[in-house]
């Protein structure tokens, strides 16, 4: 029982990483019906910019401490959000009426460019985050379960961000317009919604969130290399499909489920088999629910 709880907490932690990144895929898919293949690499760039920012700040202040994470987070969010908007402007918008295939190629191109740039600028070696940013201790929970301060931090931040995003999308005027644009561009324009503006907003929020997730993930694991975007990006993409692509609560749910299945598989069977188990279950779920867990059939009509 204690082990199960421990595993669940670990699973939810990893799941919340997947969820944060999956949200970017799902939001962009919602408004453009396009898989933004560059998203995983934007996430990875968040890890690199976080590395540069935190290393510089630790050197400059000659001290650690969680307070340093805050200004760097803001830099990461702003930079990656701007790169996201730039990609939309130069790689996607000109192709918006060019059918479904050309934007996909453009997205893959953007992904390769981002990955190559990272490798050329930062090199192919493993990078290590500065230590001493987050206290190393553990907190005891009920039933003998122990959770690290780092885990507490990432869980609180992830859930807070997801809650804020949910409120934004479902409770505000702009968020509702975002859902309207996901359903019908033309009618949205006839309502007076600036569809290009809404799409740009999505490309601010999705990559901003994804970039921050990159920094959080790198901080959590301590080290990473340029393949981070590919592996994590793919798993987050799968989470988005699992939850029902285009559906925002679905991306959160899909990420959590994938993280939990993976962790339980690794803990109870063996780490070598975790992917086999996780993806076999995924295939099963998709066979029974091809539109994903929360995928909306009504929306598919359009």
């Amino acid at each position: 029982m204690q082990q199960l709880l421990q595993q669940l907490i670990n699973g939810i932690t990893i799941g919340s990483f997947y969820a944060l990144v999956a949200l970017g895929y799902t939001m962009v898919y919602g408004v453009l019906k396009l898989i933004n293949f560059a998203h995983g690499d934007l996430f990875m760039w968040g890890a690199y910019i976080g590395l540069t920012g935190l290393s510089a700040l630790v050197a400059l202040m000659s001290r650690g401490g969680p307070i340093l994470i805050l200004p760097v987070s803001i830099i990461v969010i702003v930079t990656i959000a701007l790169v996201g908007v730039l990609i939309e402007r130069v790689a996607y918008r000109p192709l918006r009426s060019a059918g479904r295939l050309a934007p996909v190629i453009s997205a893959l191109g953007a992904a390769f460019i981002l990955e190559s740039l990272a490798r050329n600028i930062y090199g192919a070696s493993w990078k290590t985050y500065p230590t001493g940013l987050v206290p190393a201790g553990r907190v005891a929970l009920v039933g003998g379960v122990r959770i690290s301060v780092m885990q507490v931090l990432v869980l609180v931040v992830s859930f807070l961000l997801m809650a804020l995003l949910y409120l934004f999308v479902y409770r505000t005027r702009i968020g509702t317009a975002m859902r309207a644009v996901s359903l019908d561009h033309e009618v949205s324009r006839l309502m007076g919604i600036d569809v290009d503006g809404i799409i740009a907003t999505v490309f601010l929020i999705g990559p901003g969130l994804g970039g921050l997730a990159g920094m959080i993930v790198a901080l959590y694991y301590g080290s990473f290399d340029f393949t981070l975007g590919w592996i994590f990006g793919l798993k987050a993409f799968i989470s988005a499909i699992l939850g029902g692509i285009g559906n925002i609560p679905g991306a959160m749910l899909g990420g959590m489920i994938l993280g939990i299945i993976e962790t339980l598989g690794a803990g109870y069977v063996s780490p070598q088999w975790k992917d086999v188990i996780a993806y076999a279950i995924l295939i099963l779920i998709l066979i029974f629910r091809p539109t994903g867990l929360l995928g909306e059939r009504v929306a598919e009509k359009l």
């Binding site: 509702t176 317009a177 309207a180 359903l183 019908d184 007076g192 009504v298």
Partner: peptide, 19 residues
Amino acid sequence: RRIFTTLTVMENLMMGAYT
């Protein structure tokens, strides 16, 4: 009838008042 199918009636109307 191109309403926003997964928005509520109220949300549909609010989109009408978007401007």
